[in-house]
């Protein structure tokens, strides 16, 4: 738990630092009111909103990045603050790096793989578009997850079903939005988008596997070189 709070503090400090930079004019936060409006239009008119993002340019990268950061932040707080009845026991909670990997890391690797695969599939999406649309799709989850964390304090185990329904809605809605985003972004048919999603998931696994392989092999090489040098010089 200790390092967990450390990371939270660091993130918070970074946030304040950025805010002060923006205030003093060192950094520029280019979020137009338009892009915020488009974000909220996702709730009522998702396809229109995605079209606006793709063709009218009514989206901002900064807002998308903030969404992803919020995702990470909410999961960090939610993991530590969910009430006893619904949270994981302290010994089994995810650590900071695990949460980072399953929030920001997941969005990033999804975007990368989706972009890579869609290029093979003759999709029209640019990486920036995919990243923004994926991040924007997080909106329902970002709204509903804090609510479910708050409700966990007043819900007894009889009402556990309600909480799980809430989380299913949150995740399901986000997935649907992400799916619609893919359709608009790549200009694919529905069936082709399904295939794209499946292949993207496979690509993620392949990437993770390769990454792991690379990591362990490089580790072995490093230890081999170290042992060799130790044998020679010592």
């Amino acid at each position: 738990m200790g390092d967990y709070m450390e990371y939270l503090k660091k993130i918070f400090k970074f946030f304040i630092y950025k805010c002060s930079q923006i205030k003093s004019g060192e950094a520029k936060l280019s979020i137009s009111k338009d892009s915020v409006y488009t974000l909220f239009r996702l709730i009522t008119h998702p396809l229109d909103a995605f079209n606006d993002i793709k063709y009218e340019g009514k989206a901002s990268l900064a807002l998308a990045n903030i969404m992803v950061a919020l995702f990470l932040f909410e999961r960090l707080i939610g993991e530590a603050c969910t009430a006893y009845l619904f949270g994981a026991p302290e010994a089994e909670r995810m650590g900071f790096w695990m949460i980072l990997a399953t929030t920001a890391g997941l969005v990033l690797i999804w975007s990368i793989c989706n972009w890579a695969v869609s290029t093979l599939f003759d999709g029209e999406g640019a990486f920036k578009e995919i990243w923004i649309m994926t991040a924007y799709s997080l909106l329902p989850y970002l709204f509903l997850y804090p609510i479910s964390v708050a409700l966990s304090y007043v819900a007894s185990s009889d009402e556990a079903v309600m909480l799980s329904v809430l989380s299913v809605i949150a995740v399901g809605w986000t997935l649907i939005l992400a799916f619609l985003g893919m359709i608009v972004c790549q200009q694919f048919t529905v069936s082709k988008t399904v295939i794209l999603a499946v292949v993207t998931a496979l690509a993620i696994f392949a990437l993770l596997f390769l990454g792991l392989l690379f990591f362990s092999i490089s580790q072995q090489i490093v230890s081999f070189i170290r042992n060799l040098s130790m044998e020679i010089f010592l």
Partner: peptide, 15 residues
Amino acid sequence: RKWLISAKKGIDRNG
């Protein structure tokens, strides 16, 4: 909502 929509009509893209 009103504020955002009013902004939509404006020209100020970069906020």
